[in-house]
């Protein structure tokens, strides 16, 4: 399963992470997020978690973070490296497309 991020653990688990982290900004009422969610769960099983951490952030519970990172559309997946945003993808995509995007980070 993918990690669950929140405002409480974001600093430690995402920003201070020693490896890249992919964060899926989502909500229960967003239909395409329901496609992305299970795909990221599967990818979190398949990808070595010592290379790339994959997790979800519910925008309903973490409104400050979605405002801070100017997320205006979901699902949005942001990749953080050394505490900084390095890339973001907006919208649902097939599993292979996510895999392609993650490839550079898992070597």
């Amino acid at each position: 399963m993918a990690y669950v991020f929140s405002e409480a653990n974001f600093e430690n688990d995402v920003l201070k992470s020693s490896i890249p982290v992919a964060v899926d900004f989502w909500a229960t009422w967003c239909p395409p997020c329901r496609i992305t969610g299970p795909i990221l769960d599967e990818l979190s099983e398949e990808i070595d978690e010592n290379k790339l951490k994959i997790g979800k952030l519910n925008v309903d519970d973490s409104q400050h973070l979605s405002t801070e990172y100017r997320v205006l559309s979901i699902p949005t997946v942001i990749i953080f490296k050394d505490g900084k945003e390095v890339e973001r993808f907006v919208g649902a995509m097939p599993k292979e497309a996510f895999m392609e995007k993650f490839k550079p980070y898992i070597g």
Binding site: W29, V59, L72, S73, P75, T76, G91
Partner: peptide, 17 residues
């Protein structure tokens, strides 16, 4: 500006406005 204020899904993104 897609995903930065331009949206294709009101159901998904209305919340941010």
């Amino acid at each position: 500006l897609y995903g930065k204020g331009v949206s294709a899904c009101a159901t998904c993104d209305g919340f941010f406005f």
